[in-house]
Design a protein around this nucleic acid. Structure first.
Lengths: 258, 258
DNA sequence: CACCCTGTTCCAAATAATGGAACTTTTTGA
DNA sequence: TCAAAAAGTTCCATTATTTGGAACAGGGTG
């Protein structure tokens, strides 16, 4: 089934290497050399891959870039968030973006780098650990406890010591996010990286979107963080009312946050 | 041949609609309903597409976003350009980016929106007419005249009155770009949009990259444009020397530019 | 120059894709 | 509210395509 094999190649390219050689693929997948060679050649001819003639290796094609751009393009809630976040980055200088939940990961849909010296760059398409992210936990506020428990049946290793390492620890954070309507992370996924996020329901796509602000953990004092929380909550409130929906989350509470 | 059909679906999604329904695809491709239904379902199961359960329509999947991000990621010249352009946007407030040539089109690889009120937003993956773009003409400075003539055997319609409409007009602009080492466009592809760009060889990828600045045509005076040209040329000069190559293009000349 | 490593081509056997028809579900409109 | 049309799905025998071992071709290296 060549389609399944082609999809396997793409998924394999997604996780890890940016490049594939024929023999590499052959051994990794356990396919005969001839099959690997033929499949890669066919995929390149169809525009799914590109071939570097000098190294004879294959990489993702331009088609992927173009299709990736179209992902979620035109979604009204997402576009509205994106526009507001751009203003927020301009006013505060911090990096901002929007993520969604995919299994136990978050995937960045939109982002822009801040103007502060320490730039946090997570371009659209970046995947990260949902359990070690404020965005991930805000998005996990929606699914039921059972659903979350099922996804984390085997709990993944902590990316950093600060991240939750057990289901109980994660659920504590998720519950905090549920009651407060916002969440923050500190040095949990990447060294020195901190973030604050909220969440908003996207009716069209039947998922939730999590707008976020990211900054250096050492860079921002608690008072300023409270300010950022308020900005994010005001933003979602504005957008929810604009799209004729009940503002869902409570606003502006409990800045102590544990 | 299911792989070819799947690729056809992806290319079809790229050009135009963001959505496909079964019957739509069936009629567009001339396939039986059953084949269209099966293929779309299979592609969704393999993660190439996503299905909107309410509308029963299919769209590109997350996989495409993730593979798109990886496109050209890690290419040293591209990353260097991207970093420098980010500074340039911060200093000047204008939108900047990097494009490549693909046939008679340009495709944006990297971009960021400026801070000026009129924002020119062309996210990575955006395709545009190379003949009606300063970036496109800078990139066409490399191929031979014959090669260009072959690509434009049938000359495409002008996107705007200002754009070249014949091969002769295009070649005049390309030759200007060749001698000057930079090019500008004014209201040629999109109403009121102007841009300036240069080009740099990318040895690794065996293509040329065109960094650009984009702005509102009415917004920027000739003196400031000269300034922008100098900034772009200094940037490429810096990068060329950093990567141990002869600076190729002449610098800082003929600002009148026709 | 010969060897090893990687990639390509070939062809018969085996497997998976194809498309018409029947069937189910959703939408339309009277 | 209900019937008819439209859109989508499933089924299955036929057909065509994928598959993989083996032989072949480059190309770099000692």
């Amino acid at each position: 089934m060549s389609l399944a094999n082609a999809a396997a190649v793409l998924h394999w390219l997604k996780r890890g290497r940016s490049d594939v050689a024929v023999l590499e693929l052959s051994t990794a997948m356990g396919w005969p050399k001839s099959s690997a060679s033929r499949l890669l050649k066919d995929m390149a001819n169809l525009g799914l891959l590109e071939r570097d003639e000098t190294t004879r290796r294959y990489r993702a094609g331009l088609l992927m870039l173009e299709l990736g751009r179209a992902y979620a393009a035109g979604d009204p809630v997402l576009e509205a968030l994106d526009a507001e976040l751009q203003d927020m980055t301009q006013r505060t200088g911090f990096s901002t973006g929007v993520s969604i939940l995919d299994g136990i990961d978050i995937v960045v849909l939109r982002s822009r780098a801040g103007t502060h010296p320490l730039r946090v760059v997570t371009p659209p398409g970046t995947r990260g650990p949902a359990w070690a992210n404020s965005t991930g936990r805000m998005l996990m506020a929606r699914p039921s406890d059972e659903e979350i428990a099922r996804r984390f049946a085997i709990f993944p290793p902590r990316p950093r010591p600060n991240a939750p390492g057990t289901l109980a620890e994660l659920m504590a954070l998720v519950n905090r996010a549920r009651t407060c309507g916002w969440d923050e992370s500190n040095d949990e996924s990447l060294p020195g990286l901190a973030g604050i996020s909220v969440a908003i329901e996207d009716i069209d796509r039947r998922t939730a979107l999590a707008p976020y602000v990211a900054f250096s953990a050492a860079q921002v004092e608690p008072e300023e963080r409270a300010e950022l929380v308020a900005m994010l909550q005001d933003m979602t409130h504005r957008i929810e009312t604009r799209f004729g929906r009940e503002p869902s989350a409570p606003r502006l509470q409990d800045m102590a946050h544990g």
